[in-house]
Structure formats: C-alpha cells, structure tokens
Computed example of a mutant assay.
Amino acid sequence: MNLALWIGAGLLAVVLLTGGVGKLIVPREKMAAMRGAGWTADFSVGFLKFLGAVEVLGAIGLILPAVTGIAPVLVPVAAVGVVVLMIGAMITHLRRGEVMSAAGNLVYLALAAFVAWGRFGPESFTG
C-alpha cells in the first residue's frame, strides 16, 4: 500500500509539475492554441500564472515533505488541495463541453483522493 501511495503521489506530482511549469512559461495565446488547452483563453494571464504556481507548489507538497521528513502531514493536505483543484478543472471543462478532459480530471481527482485517504489513514507518516 505504501508503494502504491508513493507511485500515486509521484504520478500526480509529475502531472502537476508539467502543467504548472507550462502555465508559468508558455504565453497564454500559444497555450490557448494547443490541443486541449483552449480553456486558457477564457482566463487572464495573471490567473493562469497563479494556477501554474499552485500546481507547482502542489507537486512539491506531494513529495518533498515525505522525502525530507519535515512536516510530512503536508502530503495528504496537498492531496486534498489537488482534489479541490481537479473539481475546479472538471467544472471548467464541463462548462465548455470538454467531456474527455473532465474525465481525465476525474482520474486525477480519484488518485489524489486515494493519496489523501492513505496518508491521512492507514499509511500515515506519523503512525
């Protein structure tokens, strides 16, 4: 179970880091032209940068506290944050009729919920 939670947190961290860095460095106009990222045209540059920073911090929060042993309770807290982030992403995609993108967000939401449940419960770092 511990290995599955590490793999889940690692996968989520890669997804968040990739998406977050992209939002931080790719211009909005270029991003809006990319497949699956048309939603970015609906939001300001500032919001996209904020969202990118939140995603990068979420990726860090899923891994770094556990690796360093400093405040490992932040891992499930970060996972709950990812759940909230994915709910927002799903709402955005569903409003635009992007059902497949929302389905992908649902997969990430389920993975984040699994990590939160596991790290708050049976495989917590404090127990």
Rank of each mutant, 00 (worst) to 15 (best):
M90L: 04
H93M: 12
S124E: 05
H93V: 04
P65V: 04
V54F: 07
V15Y: 07
I60M: 05
V75W: 00
R119S: 06
P65F: 01
A89N: 00
G61F: 03
V84S: 08
L24H: 01
V21Y: 04
F43H: 13
A112K: 03
R28K: 14
G10E: 07
G127I: 05
A113F: 05
A78E: 02
M86I: 11
A103T: 15
V80F: 02
V77W: 06
G97S: 07
V45K: 11
F47S: 12
G97D: 13
P27Y: 10
K23G: 14
N105D: 15
R119Q: 12
R119K: 11
G88Q: 09
G97M: 09
G81T: 07
A89D: 03
G104T: 02
G20E: 02
M86T: 05
A59G: 14
F50E: 15
G46S: 10
V80A: 11
L94R: 15
W6T: 02
G46E: 11
H93Y: 11
F50Q: 09
M34T: 06
G38N: 12
A116T: 10
V67G: 15
G81P: 03
G127T: 08
G127R: 05
M31L: 13
P72T: 06
G88A: 04
V45E: 15
K23M: 11
V77C: 07
L17H: 04
L12Y: 09
V83H: 13
T18W: 08
G81I: 04
A13H: 00
T40S: 13
G81M: 01
N105F: 07
F125A: 14
K23Q: 15
L12P: 00
L11G: 15
F43Q: 15
F47T: 12
A4I: 12
S44Q: 11
V80K: 02
G36Q: 08
M100S: 14
R35S: 10
V84I: 14
A112L: 05
T92V: 10
A79I: 05
G61Q: 06
G8C: 07
A79T: 02
N2Q: 11
A103R: 15
L64T: 15
F125M: 12
S101P: 01
A78C: 08
L12Q: 01
G22S: 05
S101C: 08
M34H: 03
A32H: 10
T126I: 07
V99E: 00
G88L: 02
A103D: 13
F114K: 03
G20P: 04
A9H: 02
L16M: 11
V45P: 02
I25T: 14
M90H: 03
I91E: 09
E29I: 05
G58Y: 06
I91G: 12
T40G: 14
T126Q: 08
A59M: 06
P27S: 05
M31R: 15
W6G: 04
F47P: 13
V115F: 01
V15A: 14
M34I: 06
L111K: 07
I63A: 06
V67L: 11
A102R: 03
G46I: 01
I87C: 14
L106N: 09
A33R: 13
G22V: 00
D42Q: 12
G8N: 07
M90N: 00
L85T: 14
L74H: 09
V67Q: 12
